[in-house]
Structures are given as C-alpha cells and as structure tokens.
Simulated scan of single mutants.
Amino acid sequence: MVHPYAVLGFLAAVLPLVVTPGASLALLVQHVTAGGRRRALPVVLGTATGLYIHAAFAMAGLSALVMHSSQAFTAVKVIGAAYLVGLGVWTWRSATASARAPVRRHPPVRSDSVCTQALLANVLNPKAASIYLTLVPQFIEADHSFDAQILTLATAHALLVTLWLLAWTVLVRRASRTLQRPRFKRTAARITAVVFLALGIRTAVT
C-alpha cells in the first residue's frame, strides 16, 4: 500500500509532464473537433491503457531492460517516432483531401480505431516509460509489494490524465459552433498533423 503522501508527491512530480501538450491531447482535440465529445472516451481509454502497460512493463522489468540497453531504447524511439510521423502525414493528407472534396457527411470513425491510436501513441513513447523508472521508484517502499505500489501509482497517474483530457474536452466543446465549421476543422487537423510531426522528430533526435 502506497502512503497517501507518496501518491500526492508522485502526482505533483508527474503533473508538469501531464499538462505538457503531447500526442494524446492532439488526438483528443482532433477527434472531439471532428465528432463531438463522445470521441474523447476512446482517446482517454487508450491513453490510460497505455499507462497501465508501462506499469506492467516496469513490474516485469522490461522497461528497465529498454532503458538500460541503448539498442533496445533506440529501437523503441525509432518505432515511436515513425508512428507519430506517419500519423502526422496521414492527418495532414486527410485534411487536404477534405478541403478538396465537396462538403458531405463522413462515416463515423470507429471508437476502437481512435482508442488504438491513443494507445500506440502512449506505448511507443519511451519518455512515458521512463516515468516508471525514474519517478515511480522514488515513491515506493522496499518493505511493501512493488507490484501493488506501482499499480496504485499508475492508477493515480491514469486518473490525473483522465481529468486533464476531460477538462480539455469541455473547453473544446464550449467552442462548438466555431469547431463545426469545415474550415476550422481542416485547420485544426493540420495543426494536429504538425504537432504529430514535431513530436515524432523530437522523439527521434532526443
């Protein structure tokens, strides 16, 4: 069992990382803008699931292997960077295609597809994995179950991320009239694409 003060300390330490704009927030803005607040749920679910996967890797020692092996760490970075760049290119091309096509109703995007995008964006981010190797060990006690403590901190982390993304969902939906304009949707999609590209390049070079 993690002491409540340890949980609060962990949340305070991880808060700056949570509020820093990243792939999850970019996905949220893109999909909520395009399809409404219901699209936020799969983004939140995919992101939270990714955190639990990182926690599971940490419990299994896999994250330590990746972080302490330069080859494995580089492989994860390259895969993650390639995914983000590919997602950015796809998003930009989709926005460009919608600008050239006549205005019409598009079929809804499958929720499981959105969830998978958010999951991969989180799992393939080595910096997210590093949280469970650099921050988590500072808030667990050696005389208690490591797995239970890591799971508790991961749950607190997931709740914090969920609240942050839901807050952004409310902000995005309050501007619903503007957000529903086709021109704004295309602009938002292109900005999202640039964010993905920038994140992918940053991941590759850092």
Rank of each mutant, 00 (worst) to 15 (best):
P126A: 13
L133R: 08
V109W: 05
W90D: 15
A101D: 12
V114R: 06
H54A: 05
S98P: 00
A99N: 13
A60W: 07
W92N: 11
P126W: 06
A95V: 11
L120Q: 04
Q117I: 00
C115E: 03
S98C: 00
T47M: 02
N122M: 13
H106T: 12
W92D: 11
A64Q: 14
S94E: 13
G88A: 01
A48G: 11
R105Y: 05
T74Q: 11
K127D: 07
G61L: 06
V109P: 04
R104Y: 05
V76Y: 01
R93Y: 12
I131M: 12
S70D: 12
T134Q: 06
D112Q: 10
V103C: 09
P108C: 10
L84W: 03
L45E: 00
I131A: 07
A97G: 03
T91Y: 03
H68Q: 14
G61V: 11
Y52C: 13
T134M: 14
V109N: 06
A58Y: 02
V76W: 02
T47V: 04
V114Y: 04
R100K: 15
M59D: 11
G61H: 11
V123N: 05
F73M: 12
M67N: 07
Q117F: 02
G46A: 06
Y52K: 08
V76P: 01
A101C: 06
A101E: 13
T47E: 04
P107H: 10
P107E: 14
V109I: 15
T134C: 02
I131L: 15
R104W: 05
Y52L: 15
V103Q: 15
A72T: 06
G86N: 08
H54P: 01
S111K: 07
S94F: 07
G50E: 05
V103M: 09
T116S: 11
A72C: 02
G50P: 01
M67L: 09
N125L: 09
D112G: 07
L133F: 05
S98H: 10
V85R: 12
